[in-house]
Design a protein around this nucleic acid. Sequence first.
DNA 1: CTTGAAAATGTTACCGATAAAAATTACAAT
DNA 2: ATTGTAATTTTTATCGGTAACATTTTCAAG
Lengths: 340, 340
Amino acid sequence: MSVTLADIARELGLSKMTVSRAINNDPLVNEKTRERVLAVSRRVNYQPNHFARALVTNRSFLIGVIVPDLMHSYFAEIMHGISGYARGGSNYQIVIGNSEENISREIDEVEALRWRTDGLIIAPTVPASKADVYRKMLERGTKLVFIDRTLEGVDCPMVTTDNVEVGRLATEHLINLGHKKIGHLRGTSTSTSRERLEGYKQALSKNDIAFDKKLVRDCGLMESEGYRAMRLWIEDGDLPTATFAVNDPAAIGAMQAMSEAGLKVGKDIAVVGSGNIHYGDMLSVPLTTVSWSRSEMGQAAARLLIQSIEANNGDAANQKVLLSPTLIVRESCGANFVNP
Amino acid sequence: MSVTLADIARELGLSKMTVSRAINNDPLVNEKTRERVLAVSRRVNYQPNHFARALVTNRSFLIGVIVPDLMHSYFAEIMHGISGYARGGSNYQIVIGNSEENISREIDEVEALRWRTDGLIIAPTVPASKADVYRKMLERGTKLVFIDRTLEGVDCPMVTTDNVEVGRLATEHLINLGHKKIGHLRGTSTSTSRERLEGYKQALSKNDIAFDKKLVRDCGLMESEGYRAMRLWIEDGDLPTATFAVNDPAAIGAMQAMSEAGLKVGKDIAVVGSGNIHYGDMLSVPLTTVSWSRSEMGQAAARLLIQSIEANNGDAANQKVLLSPTLIVRESCGANFVNP
DNA sequence: CTTGAAAATGTTACCGATAAAAATTACAAT
DNA sequence: ATTGTAATTTTTATCGGTAACATTTTCAAG
């Protein structure tokens, strides 16, 4: 079929081993020999067999990435950061898994990918009750990096943003605009959702606004859920004057429901999201949001994972990278100016 | 490290081979034996070593997908279709490659992935002059499926839409709205770009409008390029009353340039794109576009590739799947109604 | 010339599975 | 009991690399 080390060895009257060394830049081979080997290797377009190599070295140069929603530009941008870093220098390829915000799907994907990759980058959808799945994997030596979200009880490298701060920034901005009755569309059980809610509460209390649990409504992380949640709220009545949605898709879904009901976004109800979704600035009402660097997030995650894979010394410290979020004011919050 | 066939064999006093057969549902093993093997296998959580298996069978159950732009929702939706099909039934995982509309990047990715996958799904960015790269691969047995775009001179399974029709639908719609001076923002050398231009020309000629090459301006397939192209056009003056942009990102970039220059999209200049980008309906001026099913595209591509991989009879016919496009009228074209 | 250490190359074994061929067992028919 | 065939299992070889150890070559120093 295709050319193997043995073919090259035969042609040059060398042993497979010497050829292998020459190709892997092992200093133990004579410079002249290496050149002869490389010359032939190029001529016949030798391609090492990754499977054979992986079998003996137990290294595949594949990284698994498991995200909940490929269609959300947020994760696409993270993927882009990861694959950019993984390609540069170290030569890893990316295998993707899609959990679709579904717990058992996530675990299936993880189980499928951990055996054929050198390590996984995961944005965990699972609740803390499933933490031991990951804890056991770490004990058995699987390399993991969490991204976007954390998981209580699992100690591994991770890259996140300060989500309490995200909630605070969004809510305080609304407070500063004069709102008193501020709602929140709550996400799922992910750490991001919980922390953003926490930030929302902190901002209220810091500004002497009583927390009213009727103003926090269950939503989810997807656009369709934001739509449904706001539609329900409109039917129920007793609307707030402003809303902080757990993320941009939820915010956009909510805005859609408002428009359909004849409510003016930014005027009747102010809306702030988070994540800085692609095209958020070009929507019919440009979306005010909280932003942090997705590409940096992806790059950092790839860096931490590759570090951890290539660490020959036991395991390095479980580094945590925390990115700081900033507010991006557009029009959905009712502030009538556009960001430069 | 982890459990192997040999471990199970030893425990049961069987040979590796029998255990292997039991696990692979080979009818050659005794039913009772199989059950004993499976019981142990489950108890010790046996996971076959994919590398070893791939080495001997030459099958990895990995599919490579190479797209030009992961951040474009169009390709994200295609990916979703592919991975949905690949997971269901047959159990393939997806390795992604990103060409970024860059010719040598694409070839690098293809070279890197072909050896570690069972086949590739590619949206080719390369021009016809590079066709022999793919032709040679096919000759050597690499399984390929083209998606979204074709490549002249390469005969392999493919899934595309009728892009001449796309250009015709968009342009005729503008003609029907009364426009005579219709511009086109031309893409790159991809088949999609060429065919859409061809459709544009056909629509003009069918309606007795002379083709004016000054109305076709070089653009590209990315948002930034649409922006730049339209900005330049505005500077140069002699604007058309309507424009068909090669795809939605280009259209959106162009609309941005128009807004910045104080031109009203849909009023001063009508705009039609193609591809039906996510959130195209929620933009400040909802985008009129031509649409076809991305998920079907992805699913069909995965189906064709897996068929071709698993075909034991030589190679089946090189099936071509053609999806038909439909016009989606929103507001950027100046027609003052929104699609149901 | 030896000698000995360093440099270069070679040998053997193995990673964990499967293919192909060989061997054993089971069992019905004579 | 004997035979023959089908059913089941084992043996051996192999996929294409690399690790670990063994051997040969080179060449300066005595």
